[in-house]
Design a protein around this nucleic acid. Structure first.
Lengths: 241, 241
DNA sequence: CCCACCTTAGATATCAGACATCTGATGTTA
DNA sequence: TAACATCAGATGTCTGATATCTAAGGTGGG
């Protein structure tokens, strides 16, 4: 029995439980789940709660429901980990089974540009911390990162040289990044970035320009990440509307 | 009053109705919606059905619900039209307010490659129709498209030169593309594609390699689209998990 | 006057049980 | 054999109740 009492809403726990069961093969692809009545009894929740969870799972394309027939595991249960899931570069490298590292290039306090003022909805005289780093995987440079964050969100004198900025913001500043609006651009050659990443002439870069927000929709962090295209692969599930 | 009787499930109609109301400004950003009890009464559905709809809208980041407080329109109600929404190139150009056109390059029947066999889970001797086209916006070339589709999905002797392939598949072959798994890659220069799209040397390409599926998860269409990066902008909402 | 505590109204979260409707399978009959 | 009728079981929807959370307002002691 777990120590941590789960204060999260029931339907969320049900979602996680079902997802876990699918991932662990309790229910296999295309397989029929128990009936709602049965499943609700098994999980110890009401049918209404279970149905809210199933509705979300259906929307996420994890299951398929057919009126009068049953509920089935989707044939391609997408826990995607596609680009629509936001994770730090550190997490991405770690998830690829490699050792993340950081080469610290520069850090300075700057006044916001016109675009920054719009992005952060901040004052003209607001101070921004601008950090430039190269992220490495197994000591090989793979991403060039520029991060901008208003100083007011950061505690004084922290060491931002060694860790994921998202983690720092969470641990030190108690700011949890909940989502980001990301623009995706290709880049053939960048006279500053490409040499640093040791790019062959034919190796293009994928640029993600990301505005990060916290749970209260406050703009916290703006980042520009240059990914070496032969080291990262991005995919996304696109749904027709 | 609309003629078409809506046979779709109630909760779906409720979702659409609420989305429409938000889009049309009936409920504004950050504004509080009526209580579930009140809203259910207004819409003429039960609270349980309304709650299923609200749960989905919450998951889609259209609304925010706070226990004991109320339901609010999200501060940035994302009907994103980001990359996670699949649309044909034709639709994309049209949505940008420009006139879509097609330059037909080639069309041939080919046997599948190793990768094609995996992708389509088809037989080695299956015939594939391969079409190469350049799509134009206001007569300016903007996308280079290669499409592969098993001949068995297409009726004989159709004119695929003028229209969206997705529309043809739907109208002529009664195959509705429901989603696609898309890989995103940058490309600096392509010796065949770049000249055709009249790319300046510094203009990179964004390549989308897409496997399209229908509602029954059958692989129908594989496409490779080369987008001129200065003519298209892609974005995506990335959520933390 | 202010702050800590209590109470309460109103909202969402969850529950229990019923009925409606759809689907697939089975059986029946012309 | 084919069309129809029936039925079991599943999801869809409804009703009405209770539980829990939150914000706001009241209250009393300092």
């Amino acid at each position: 029995m777990s120590v941590k009492t789960d204060h999260r809403h029931l339907y969320l726990q049900v979602i996680d439980r079902i997802k876990k069961d699918i991932e662990q093969g309790v229910y296999k692809e295309k397989e029929k789940l128990p009936s709602e009545f049965e499943l609700a009894k098994q999980l110890g929740v009401s049918r209404a709660t279970l149905r809210e969870a199933l509705r979300v799972l259906e929307e996420e394309n994890v299951i398929i429901r057919r009126h009068g027939v049953g509920t089935f595991v989707s044939s391609r249960p997408m826990f995607t980990s596609g680009i629509e899931q936001l994770s730090s570069v550190t997490e991405m490298i770690r998830q690829a089974g490699r050792k993340p590292g950081t080469i610290f290039l520069s850090s300075s306090i700057q006044k916001p540009t016109e675009d920054d003022i719009k992005r952060f909805q901040c004052h003209k005289e607001e101070d921004l911390l601008v950090v430039e780093r190269v992220r490495t995987a197994n000591n090989e440079p793979v991403v060039y990162c520029i991060d901008k964050v208003p100083c007011k969100y950061l505690p004084k004198g922290i060491a931002y040289e060694n860790e994921s900025l998202l983690e720092i913001l969470h641990d030190e500043a108690n700011r949890y990044i909940a989502y980001a609006i990301t623009h995706i651009e290709p880049l053939g050659y960048h006279e500053k970035v490409s040499p640093v990443l040791q790019c062959e002439p034919e190796t293009a870069l994928l640029v993600l320009k990301q505005m990060h927000f916290d749970e209260n929709d406050e703009p916290i962090l703006y980042s520009i990440d240059y990914f070496k295209s032969d080291k990262f692969s991005f995919h996304v599930l696109r749904k027709r509307v």
